[in-house]
Lab assay of single mutants.
Amino acid sequence: TTYKLILNGKTLKGETTTEAVDAETAERVFKEYAKKNGVDGEWTYDDATKTFTVTE
Results as ranks from 00 to 15, higher is better:
51 T>H: 03
43 W>Q: 01
25 T>K: 13
27 E>F: 14
53 T>F: 06
55 T>N: 04
55 T>Q: 10
7 L>N: 02
55 T>S: 11
25 T>V: 15
28 R>T: 12
49 T>E: 13
28 R>C: 04
39 V>S: 04
7 L>W: 14
19 E>S: 13
56 E>T: 04
13 K>L: 11
9 G>V: 14
37 N>F: 11
29 V>I: 15
48 A>S: 13
47 D>G: 09
48 A>Y: 13
3 Y>M: 01
2 T>M: 10
41 G>S: 02
56 E>K: 02
41 G>I: 01
55 T>P: 01
35 K>M: 09
2 T>Q: 13
8 N>A: 08
46 D>L: 06
29 V>N: 06
19 E>N: 13
31 K>Q: 14
33 Y>W: 12
21 V>Y: 09
40 D>S: 12
7 L>P: 02
11 T>Q: 11
26 A>C: 02
8 N>H: 09
13 K>H: 08
51 T>F: 03
14 G>M: 14
8 N>W: 08
36 K>S: 11
6 I>L: 15
53 T>R: 09
21 V>Q: 09
14 G>R: 05
12 L>P: 03
17 T>N: 06
32 E>G: 05
32 E>V: 12
43 W>M: 06
53 T>D: 03
10 K>W: 14
24 E>R: 10
40 D>K: 09
35 K>W: 13
16 T>N: 05
17 T>C: 04
45 Y>V: 02
3 Y>H: 03
43 W>H: 01
27 E>V: 07
26 A>S: 03
8 N>I: 13
17 T>F: 12
36 K>W: 11
49 T>W: 06
51 T>W: 02
13 K>E: 10
54 V>Q: 01
39 V>A: 03
35 K>Y: 08
23 A>N: 12
12 L>I: 13
32 E>W: 11
42 E>S: 14
49 T>L: 13
24 E>A: 10
25 T>D: 14
29 V>W: 12
35 K>E: 07
16 T>D: 04
22 D>A: 07
20 A>V: 07
22 D>E: 11
16 T>C: 05
50 K>V: 04
26 A>R: 00
52 F>G: 00
7 L>V: 12
26 A>W: 01
40 D>T: 10
1 T>Q: 14
33 Y>R: 03
17 T>W: 15
33 Y>F: 08
49 T>D: 05
22 D>Y: 05
9 G>S: 14
31 K>T: 07
17 T>R: 12
44 T>V: 15
26 A>N: 00
41 G>P: 01
30 F>D: 00
34 A>G: 04
33 Y>V: 05
55 T>G: 07
38 G>W: 07
42 E>T: 10
46 D>T: 13
46 D>E: 14
31 K>N: 07
28 R>K: 12
52 F>R: 00
51 T>N: 02
14 G>Y: 09
21 V>I: 09
19 E>A: 10
19 E>T: 06
9 G>A: 10
41 G>V: 02
8 N>L: 11
39 V>K: 02
30 F>H: 01
23 A>S: 10
1 T>M: 13
5 L>C: 04
37 N>P: 01
4 K>C: 03
48 A>G: 13
8 N>E: 11
33 Y>G: 02
6 I>D: 03
39 V>F: 09
25 T>P: 02
15 E>G: 04
48 A>D: 10
26 A>V: 03
17 T>S: 09
19 E>V: 08
14 G>S: 15
25 T>C: 04
21 V>S: 07
23 A>W: 10
36 K>A: 04
48 A>M: 10
40 D>V: 13
12 L>K: 07
15 E>S: 10
49 T>P: 02
13 K>P: 11
51 T>I: 10
37 N>G: 05
36 K>N: 12
41 G>R: 01
54 V>C: 05
21 V>L: 07
43 W>C: 02
27 E>H: 09
22 D>F: 05
23 A>V: 10
28 R>M: 13
49 T>I: 04
54 V>T: 03
53 T>L: 08
37 N>Y: 14
28 R>E: 13
15 E>A: 06
17 T>G: 06
4 K>I: 07
4 K>L: 14
16 T>F: 08
26 A>T: 01
32 E>L: 15
36 K>C: 05
2 T>A: 07
27 E>L: 10
32 E>A: 13
54 V>L: 15
17 T>K: 11
11 T>C: 05
37 N>V: 08
19 E>D: 11
45 Y>S: 01
5 L>H: 00
51 T>E: 06
20 A>S: 08
14 G>V: 15
53 T>V: 12
52 F>D: 00
20 A>Y: 03
37 N>H: 15
27 E>P: 00
21 V>K: 13
2 T>I: 09
51 T>P: 00
23 A>Q: 15
1 T>R: 11
23 A>P: 09
18 T>V: 11
19 E>C: 05
5 L>Q: 00
46 D>Q: 13
34 A>Q: 02
56 E>M: 04
34 A>S: 15
41 G>Q: 02
34 A>P: 00
25 T>S: 11
31 K>W: 11
24 E>P: 09
30 F>G: 00
15 E>R: 04
40 D>Q: 10
24 E>T: 10
30 F>V: 02
19 E>I: 12
31 K>S: 06
36 K>T: 15
3 Y>W: 04
52 F>K: 00
48 A>C: 05
13 K>R: 12
16 T>S: 11
1 T>K: 15
41 G>F: 03
49 T>S: 13
36 K>P: 01
19 E>Y: 09
7 L>Q: 03
18 T>I: 05
33 Y>I: 07
15 E>P: 03
41 G>W: 10
12 L>A: 05
11 T>L: 14
56 E>C: 03
10 K>F: 14
18 T>Q: 08
23 A>H: 15
3 Y>F: 09
3 Y>Q: 00
15 E>T: 11
3 Y>T: 00
40 D>F: 07
14 G>E: 15
21 V>D: 12
37 N>I: 05
22 D>I: 04
19 E>F: 15
27 E>Q: 06
1 T>H: 06
9 G>H: 10
13 K>F: 12
7 L>G: 02
51 T>V: 12
14 G>I: 14
